[in-house]
Amino acid sequence: MTSHGVPRGSGIQPTTDQDRRKEQQKIRDYKGLVESVNSRVSLLCDVILSRLTPTSIREHQYNVETLELTSKLLKSNPEYFTIWNHRRLIMQHFFEQDSNQTSRTTGDQNQKAVVDMIDDDLAFLLPLLRKFPKCYWIWNYRLWLLEESMHFLSAAEARKLWQQELALAGKVLSLDSRNFHGWGYRRTVVQALDGAVLEGEDSSTSMTEQEFIYTTKMINTNLSNFSAWHTRSKLIPRLLNERRADNEARKNFLDEELELIQRALWAGSDDQSLWFYHQYLMSTFDPRYARDSIAPDLTADERVKYVAQEFDRVQEMLDGAEDCKWIYQSLIQLSILYKSLITNCPVKASSVQTWIDELLRLDPLRAGRWNDLKSSLDN
């Protein structure tokens, strides 16, 4: 089984009696491991019925042996999210122990102990990420470890760990550039590095420009990278604000983005992600959304001029791509926007109806949607 052409971890079905016996033994071993881990951790929930004190139970159950059992179990099944929660409790216990032992004379030593624990646990996760790159729980747990570093370590030590993660996110995306887990993780890491908690001497400059350049690189590598386009759209407002872009600079930036997406659309007009980004840019010309757009202070005449230009460009794409539903959808959306901006819109109602009929032909599963659109335009 693959996703974006990248294989996902999957078991091989047994074919012989010997294979089946081995598989059955694996299942028995797995069930025994699950029972052992759950019984060790759940003992704390029964503290009222036990003669042991809560502290002694934690020390007895939240130990290296239990941690190793969770490691063994998670290697077999990283989708078992309850075990990740058990592991959190164990690691939290370790962190708190070292934190409580910290003093003026041993503070640096205990900081190193926490750093080593987090480093070891992050290293444990790497083979799992390689084998199961789409597993939510691995990513969530990894992020939890980094967030814990901000509670138990100095800003400088924690920042080192987060900077290492940015490099890891880059490696993950080099293996699968459309891994949306990796993109979401990267955005979170960048946000943390740009935040006040991890602020350091080398962090006075925002990473927005750097990340914007990174999206350009990834888009040029693969135009179908929806996550790269999405991240780009999230970066643009902050980028323009940090540049303190005036109206002219914003219009120039908009023109560059329009040229970029047009080149991409000509190369791959069937790509949904490109049309989504194009639609994002078109929201700049809609007065309802203009305030939060790339160029909020365009005049009414400028909006009309931009929409007319985009309408002509998209209509030109129809030549040789008559079976591309995305072109018809864009033409309809642009026509509706065009008519909202100018009284005497040159786009004929009959043309819009023809495009809707084409959508009914090309996309019959959404016939109800297109018929509703046709009825709303008739009214």
Results as ranks from 00 to 15, higher is better:
residue 115 V to M: 11
residue 89 L to C: 02
residue 71 S to G: 05
residue 124 F to Y: 11
residue 42 S to A: 15
residue 31 K to D: 09
residue 119 D to W: 04
residue 61 Q to S: 12
residue 59 E to M: 11
residue 111 Q to G: 14
residue 106 T to K: 08
residue 74 L to C: 01
residue 131 K to D: 07
residue 77 N to F: 00
residue 41 V to E: 00
residue 129 L to D: 00
residue 122 L to R: 06
residue 104 R to S: 13
residue 38 N to K: 03
residue 100 N to D: 08
residue 55 T to P: 01
residue 123 A to Q: 07
residue 66 T to D: 02
residue 101 Q to V: 08
residue 75 K to T: 02
residue 56 S to V: 11
residue 30 Y to P: 08
residue 39 S to I: 11
residue 126 L to D: 15
residue 52 L to Y: 08
residue 99 S to Y: 02
residue 124 F to R: 03
residue 58 R to Q: 10
residue 105 T to P: 08
residue 47 V to T: 09
residue 24 Q to K: 14
residue 120 D to H: 12
residue 94 F to S: 03
residue 117 M to S: 10
residue 62 Y to F: 11
residue 117 M to C: 14
residue 79 E to L: 13
residue 96 E to I: 12
residue 82 T to G: 01
residue 112 K to N: 10
residue 27 I to G: 10
residue 128 L to N: 06
residue 86 H to F: 07
residue 134 K to R: 04
residue 122 L to I: 14
residue 93 H to E: 12
residue 102 T to E: 10
residue 134 K to E: 00
residue 114 V to S: 10
residue 79 E to A: 15
residue 124 F to N: 11
residue 36 S to P: 05
residue 69 L to D: 00
residue 130 R to E: 04
residue 28 R to S: 12
residue 126 L to K: 13
residue 122 L to A: 09
residue 36 S to F: 07
residue 99 S to G: 06
residue 34 V to W: 04
residue 63 N to R: 04
residue 75 K to A: 08
residue 93 H to T: 14
residue 83 I to P: 11
residue 102 T to Y: 12
residue 83 I to M: 09
residue 33 L to T: 01
residue 66 T to G: 06
residue 134 K to S: 05
residue 111 Q to P: 05
residue 26 K to H: 07
residue 83 I to S: 08
residue 60 H to W: 05
residue 47 V to S: 06
residue 111 Q to D: 14
residue 78 P to W: 03
residue 112 K to Y: 05
residue 77 N to D: 04
residue 95 F to H: 11
residue 73 L to W: 05
residue 71 S to F: 02
residue 62 Y to M: 08
residue 41 V to L: 15
residue 58 R to G: 11
residue 55 T to Y: 01
residue 123 A to F: 00
residue 66 T to F: 00
residue 23 E to H: 13
residue 75 K to V: 04
residue 112 K to P: 06
residue 37 V to A: 15
residue 40 R to H: 05
residue 86 H to I: 03
residue 38 N to G: 07
residue 114 V to D: 11
residue 78 P to M: 09
residue 113 A to Y: 07
residue 112 K to D: 10
residue 102 T to K: 15
